[in-house]
Every structure is written in structure tokens, then in C-alpha cells.
Nucleic acid binder design. Structure first.
Lengths: 156, 156
DNA sequence: TTTAATTTTGTAATGATTACAATTGAGCAT
DNA sequence: ATGCTCAATTGTAATCATTACAAAATTAAA
């Protein structure tokens, strides 16, 4: 639980004026774990600031990204997701349920931060995985067993 | 230079009927290097098939992705990009010029294909980098030198 | 309190992608 | 050939996240 004062200090450090909407957006990012959609954040701050607009959310998020407070995660091709910058982890998208999970791995590339490859200056390293999550695997397993039981009953 | 017959064989192998538009889309992907936009492909096949529709391009690309012939690359948050599946390489997006470059690296994670992490079944591994490309770095370097020269002239 | 600068708001536009119904085309039996 | 059936393609309209932009509100300074 980060305090309002702590958030304000963080924003000022990065040259961002800590207005109420901005502080709230940071707080929502901080309180709700990772990979939040702009829409989720918008609805969340609407509870406090009924007049808040989507534009403010987008503007604030992009300035947070610009100064390096926040990461923009692009996995699905549709909605971008945002989270407070945090090193050494990637994301996993379940192709079945659409859920996004954190994968804490120490990628050797991500360690040697901001180096060069073939003359290009590397500033950001993004990685993500797609597959079937634990829960969906379990669910599929159970369904398979059900079907086998059905088959046996039919053939009897 | 892949032959039409070779493309047809590939599509049939994957259970895709090798219609002319589909073969042409594969050929465009094959002849023009990696990370092509749907729009580029659309314009390219329009040269041969003046009646071709965007929908066909999208449908075809998504079936190619589905059967694993093609990878969908999501970097910019806007346009998706497509390329024929190829292992052990990632992409680099230049934040200045918007160019996308191949980065051939042997990521240790990408080697142990389709394993599991924390119970989740990993089917795809995506990685990309952002930064400033070689050319833009050189350009910035030259501009900096220009400015230094200007400063000297002014102070003289 | 007035002024100026910044931030926020709200609406309209954008642009890639998808939905869907109508048309076309390929393969096959008559 | 002709008609039939199914799949592929087309074209238009809708969707939906995001951006542009001008007006209103807020803040900080004078």
C-alpha cells in the first residue's frame, strides 16, 4: 500500500505535476497488480472522479510510459495493458480464457540492460508467451475424462 | 524464390485449399522478407487480382497463423505484421524511424520449445526490442557534430 | 483578483480489424 | 454441357481502441 505522498514524490521526481487524476491513476496501477487495461483504469478512477475522461487516462498513461514509470504491454493486438515498471518478468497469455499471468524469469538478455545488438541501441526488451494456462489445462483434462466415461457407457 | 508448386504443396499439407489468392498471399510473404503489414500484402496482391478484398487477406492470414505457417507480430500497438514462421529470431523497432529489423539471437528460452512454466503450457514465445536503430544513431551523431560546429562559430 | 499556463474534458475523427450477407467459383453428379 | 452444393471471396457496414482538438476548468503566479 503506497501512500499518496509517496506517489506525489515519484511523479515530481520524473517531472510530472502530481494532479489528483494522475495520482489516482498511479494508485490504481499500484493497487491492482499488473497488466491493467486503460478501460479498467478509467472505470476505477471514475468512482472517485465522476467527470474523468478517457483522454486523461490515455494522456497520463502515455506520459508515465514516456518517463519510464510504467510499461505498456502489447500482447493481444487489441487492448494495450499497463503496469508499473518492474524488471525481470514477462507475461503469459492463455489462448483459451484470455487471462494474462506473470512469468518471473531471469532472461539473460534482459539482464545486460540497454546494450547494443548489431549497432542498434536497445532501450527496451519485451517478451511474452502464449499457450494454455494451468486452469484451462486442468479443465480440458476433466472434460476428456468425462468423454471417456460417456464412450464406455455407450459401448456397453 | 519459392515455386508456385512448392507453395501449393505446403498449403495442402496444412489442410488449406490452395486457391489463387492464398497462394499469392503466401508468395508475397515469401518474396518480401519479414514483418509485412496486411495493407502491404493487400496492395501487392491487388496488382494480380484487382478484385481482391482486404477481408480475404485477413482471413487468409489468420488461417495461416492458425495452422502455424505464419507468425503474427505485435509490436507497435497499431498494425499487426506477418511473416513466414522462422525460429530463433526476434524483432527490433526503432522508436525514431519506425523501422523494424531482424535480430538473430539464440534465446535459451526459445530453444526448449513448447515446455511448461509454472504449470502453464507454453506454445509460443514472442520477443521484441525497442530502441534507436544504427542509422538513426548515426544521423543523431552527425547532427550533434553540426551543432557543435555552430556553437564554435557563434562564440568566435 | 487577474492573468497566464497547464490540465482536463467531451466530442468527433481515425484507422485497423471484424461481421455478415451476397456473389462468385470449384468440383462433382446427372 | 447443365445443374447442384459447398466453400471461398467480395464489399459494405459496424466495431472499438485510440487520438485529435477545441472548449472549459483548474492551478500557480503576479
Amino acid at each position: 500500500m503506497i501512500t499518496i505522498e509517496h506517489i506525489k514524490k515519484k511523479l515530481i521526481e520524473k517531472g510530472i505535476k502530481p494532479t489528483y487524476p494522475r495520482v489516482r491513476i498511479y494508485q490504481v496501477l499500484s493497487d491492482n497488480g499488473g497488466h491493467l487495461t486503460a478501460d479498467f483504469i478509467f472505470k476505477e478512477i471514475r468512482k472517485d472522479i465522476p467527470t474523468a475522461s478517457r483522454t486523461t487516462v490515455y494522456n497520463t498513461l502515455s506520459s508515465f510510459v514516456e518517463v519510464g514509470l510504467v510499461d505498456e504491454i502489447l500482447i493481444t493486438g487489441t487492448e494495450a495493458r499497463y503496469e508499473i515498471k518492474r524488471r525481470n518478468h514477462h507475461h503469459f497469455l492463455c489462448k483459451k480464457c484470455g487471462g494474462i499471468f506473470d512469468i518471473d524469469i531471469k532472461c539473460p538478455l534482459a539482464q545486460g540492460e540497454y546494450s547494443r545488438v548489431r549497432g542498434h541501441l536497445i532501450q527496451e526488451i519485451h517478451g511474452y508467451f502464449k499457450g494454455i494456462c494451468k486452469d484451462c489445462l486442468k479443465k480440458a483434462e476433466l472434460e476428456r475424462e468425462e468423454h471417456e466415461k460417456d464412450d464406455r457407457e455407450v459401448s456397453e
